[in-house]
Write a protein that binds this DNA or RNA. Structure first.
Length: 404
DNA sequence: CGATCACGC
DNA sequence: GCGTGATCG
């Protein structure tokens, strides 16, 4: 059951892009960048290239003597992880972060996407690559439509330009809820994790209760939930205290406490991690739910950094790769049923755990059922697979709804 | 062309 | 953990 024809159809179908919206946003971004750069130059007492990490580092950490200091071999690190903690104390840092964000959006999306519209079809056609990633995920390029901004409000506005193929059509988006953590629950057979998913609980709040040792009815504030969410992601990525401390902006010792506390509360997860690493050492590879292999030739390397890196891959690859397997199966089955029923609705994008459709008038309810069924039944795990639904007149104005 | 940075999951 | 892409030097 090949996926390739599904991808080919998605690529050929393309997606409609309203270039007027992007042109307007680009203009606004340009004006904002002008204001920001003028102010950055004024505060630093000279003009320089803000886009050059080297020049920026010298201005911030040598000329203005901001605390923080060096990091990389090429000089000072100016990554958002370094700048973020400084932004409330130094206005220039806050301006630089704003500049970075807007400049990124302008140069990567606003000014590029309009030029990639196919002159013949009038649409944007990405390439979905099946042979690139080491885990079995797809990748998308020219343009990459798997990294369209969603996090910041200005970035999210870009999604207003992505529209269905006609005024009558509707964009429909479905995504797997916490698929990777559910796969972890499945593989680890962790009682706590499985119970939480079976009861339909908020998994990050649940984790917060566990690692902070709070009663089950305790109210979880946003900062505790944020920490728990980062810990959960860390677990999926094969976590190190170093990585977690960097992500949370705390010291390693504290990060280590969170991890230990997590493993104490979720012993099944700890066992799974140990098990999959042993499996990798024995076989030289790990596998996904459908049997895809990820080879790990350096899992027993003498160099600890290399070894630990391979171990993180051994933990993450089966989880990330199984999620990719599952959504691919769903895509094939959805495509077949849409085809069998001679519907005009088409799949337009896949974003790892998410599918986006261009729905034709009159087909809405049918397509919702088809997509829900095939996504939720693509694979039987020890926990339910849950899919969430949104619809809208463009990729920005998406409203959640239930499919019964 | 490697390094750095930032966007997504 | 997995990607793509812009920019610098």
């Amino acid at each position: 059951m090949p996926l390739i024809s599904v991808l080919a159809k998605m690529e050929m179908r393309g997606i409609s892009l309203d270039t007027d919206i992007l042109k307007d946003l680009s203009l606004r971004a340009g004006e904002e960048l002008e204001v920001l750069s003028d102010e950055i130059y004024r505060l630093s007492g000279e003009n320089f290239n803000i886009n050059s990490p080297k020049q920026l580092g010298e201005i911030l950490f040598e000329k203005l003597k901001l605390p923080g200091g060096s990091k990389t071999k090429t000089g000072y690190s100016t990554s958002s992880n370094v700048l973020e903690p400084l932004k409330d104390h130094y206005r220039i840092v806050s301006l630089v972060l704003d500049y970075r964000e807007i400049n990124k959006l302008k140069t990567t999306y606003l000014d590029v996407l309009p030029g990639l519209i196919d002159t013949f079809t009038g649409k944007l056609h990405t390439s979905f690559n099946q042979m690139i990633t080491s885990t079995g995920r797809l990748s998308s390029s020219n343009p990459n439509l798997q990294n369209i901004p969603v996090r910041t409000e200005f970035g999210k506005l870009i999604r207003k330009a992505f529209k269905p193929s006609s005024e009558e059509n509707i964009l429909f988006a479905t995504d797997y809820s916490q698929i990777e953590l559910r796969i972890l629950a499945h593989y680890s057979d962790s009682e706590r994790l499985i119970k939480a998913f079976q009861d339909g609980r908020d998994i990050h709040s649940e984790t917060a209760r566990d690692i902070f040792e709070l009663p089950s009815d305790a109210v979880i504030d946003s900062s505790m939930r944020r920490i728990a969410k980062t810990v959960n992601f860390g677990i999926l990525y094969g976590i190190s205290d170093f990585g977690l401390s960097r992500n949370l902006g705390i010291d390693r010792k504290e990060a280590k406490k969170y991890i230990e506390s997590y493993f104490f509360k979720f012993p099944g997860v700890k066992d799974y991690i140990d098990r999959v690493i042993l499996e990798a050492r024995k076989n030289g590879y790990v596998t996904t739910i459908s049997g895809r292999k990820r080879h790990l030739n350096r899992i027993s390397d003498r160099n600890m950094n290399i070894r630990k890196g391979e171990e993180r891959i051994a933990v993450n690859a089966p989880i990330q790769g199984s999620a990719a397997d599952i959504i691919k199966l769903a895509m094939i089955q959805i495509d077949r049923e849409i085809d069998d029923r001679k519907l005009k609705t088409g799949m337009v994008l896949q974003v790892h755990d998410e599918l986006i459709f261009d729905i034709f008038p009159g087909e809405f309810d049918t397509v919702c059922r088809i997509v829900k069924t095939h996504m939720e039944k693509a694979c039987k795990l020890g926990v339910p697979l849950i899919v969430e639904f949104k619809k809208g007149i463009d990729w920005y104005h998406m409203e959640s709804f239930q499919v019964l």
